[in-house]
Nucleic acid binder design. Structure first.
Lengths: 307, 307
DNA sequence: AAAAGCATTTCCACAATGCGGAACAGTTTG
DNA sequence: CAAACTGTTCCGCATTGTGGAAATGCTTTT
């Protein structure tokens, strides 16, 4: 039947990414791809290049876009011909941040931390093998760190990521590591030194990023725990090396950890009893806990799991 | 062929809401409805009631949901069977937050308001314990109020300031008040009467400055809310007492409030559900800002007009 | 001013795609 | 142990989405 299979191939790839799963609505998947692509280009995109990015015919792209526009999920600027993400996307997206109202709760504490440390404070959580920044309280300094909420970083290259990795169940951590090591250009990440730094993190109670993510910037991060003493989210202080001197680090480390402890308590989490061997001697955790944290934060669960 | 047209009728209505518009992709529109409905129910929704809310068959709803889930735009909690908004929605939505620039948007609405009221309209935001005027649309009258954008006033002595104070989180407000009361010559500010007027502001939905800032001038102001229902900025109408009579005030109040509501919607903010008790009935809800608002407003524009 | 270039927008015949009723498979309830 | 809930899967049908092509609108170039 697919006599012209060649021309369809690239389109089919889009649809069938996860093997022969049937329950995929093509048009919707495509629209979501469009939204995602749009969100990766802040300035907005012109129809034709957007269509190219998504590997879709322009007419199809246009049809989907106008539908999205009618629902205000995207906007179109007639003077510049640029398509960009619309209000309704924002409104919907914020429901995620609201649902467990973990974020507002955390922010109260983050503000205090910012005042104490004088530096930008970030809240981040794990999503698969990445970190998503959820909120930040910016420093009052002119020269300051600033990350856009919603942006993502690989797990291994930030203080928050390291903190979360360090706080994870062995099983989960190995899963992540294996996942990454399949990717050829990434098998150099989990060096012995890196693993050592995770150990250090566990011992100290906070993770350090010493100009690894960005030159001239240091970050100190610690973990907010969920009710199973698993990592729910991480809080970091980040600022320029000029102000965050090596001498200050232990002190800042203590500050973040204190904040995390407070948030953990307020949220109903459980700080691990023994920092040195914090996690689940029982080992009953399953692979699904990989992304449980975000679920909790976004958490649909109606007051269930927390006591 | 369309023998069963009757049963299709209600479904068709969904598609054709905006008359006979052709370019509407049914499945996508439906999916967007689902997302929106989910975002309106923070706790998450069960499949069947969600399907009902959207007036869709459960099987269709389910198919769309799983597609959304595969793309992480929604999330499903297997233990409680609740569907809720997912990370990717948040990630995409934040792109909107980055791209919007607030002042030009606000100005279009302010012009309308000026025409309706006939008086100068101001936009202001909080910066620490002060108000900064960000923009104004001047009245056509010869005798008119005029503030230079960029100028500052203490929080407590203007309609805009009062509006913002009234709209703030209790925590933030107390912080501000404490901050001020340290300053010796200012400890007379937060009198019982003043606190009463804040309450009134909350009840009415607008703040009034009756010749307090300047003799012979009256101002009426209301709040534009951010996505956490915190005060993002304030809009005021100001003019001479001769024209802004006491009798006109309720009407003008309604006008500013309407404008603020519109701007809030356009900006992606959330108007507090209950105007009479607007602030965080759910406990520690927002607490977003103190100085975040200005960053939000002025931060994105590369022109950086104000700091 | 006409032509060329480049974008969006509309059109339409075609069949692939999404549809939804109904059957199935688990839970909880009475 | 039915009955009454859920969510999930199936599958034949035709509605719906598809995409090539042509039309439209807007600048820029000649």
């Amino acid at each position: 039947m697919k006599s012209d299979a060649t021309s369809k191939k690239n389109l089919d790839q889009l649809t069938n990414e996860s093997a022969g799963r049937s329950s995929q609505v093509q048009s919707l998947t495509r629209a979501l791809t469009i939204l995602t692509k749009l969100s990766e280009h802040d300035g907005g995109l012109i129809l034709t290049v957007l269509a190219n990015l998504c590997a879709l015919p322009t007419s199809t792209t246009h049809r989907l876009l106008t539908t999205l526009e009618n629902n205000r999920f995207v906007r179109f600027d007639r003077t510049s011909n640029l398509w960009s993400v619309g209000v309704q996307s924002f409104v919907v997206g914020n429901a995620f941040a609201r649902s467990r109202n973990f974020i507002p709760l955390a922010k109260t504490f983050m503000r205090h931390l910012m005042e104490e440390a004088g530096e930008t404070v970030n809240l981040a959580a794990q999503d698969q093998d990445e970190i998503v920044y959820l909120a930040q309280v910016e420093s009052r300094e002119i020269m300051r760190a600033s990350v856009r909420p919603g942006s993502r970083v690989p797990l291994h290259c930030s203080a928050v990521g390291k903190a979360i990795l360090a706080g994870m169940d062995d099983i989960d951590r190995n899963l992540i590591i294996q996942l990454q090591q399949v990717t050829p250009d990434k098998n150099h990440i989990f060096t012995p030194e890196f693993m050592k730094s995770l150990k250090d993190t566990q011992l100290l109670g906070y993770a350090l990023d010493d100009e690894e993510q960005s030159i001239g910037m240091r970050c100190v991060a610690s973990i907010v725990y969920d009710e199973n003493s698993g990592p729910l989210a991480a809080i970091s202080i980040s600022g320029p090396t000029a102000r965050i001197t090596k001498a200050r680090i232990p002190n800042l480390g203590r500050l973040v950890q204190k904040t995390c402890k407070d948030i953990t308590a307020e949220f109903g989490g459980r700080f691990p009893l023994d920092i040195n061997r914090p996690l689940h001697a029982t080992g009953t955790k399953n692979a699904s806990s990989l992304n449980n944290a975000l679920q909790l934060i976004a958490g649909s669960t109606k007051g269930k799991p927390l006591n």
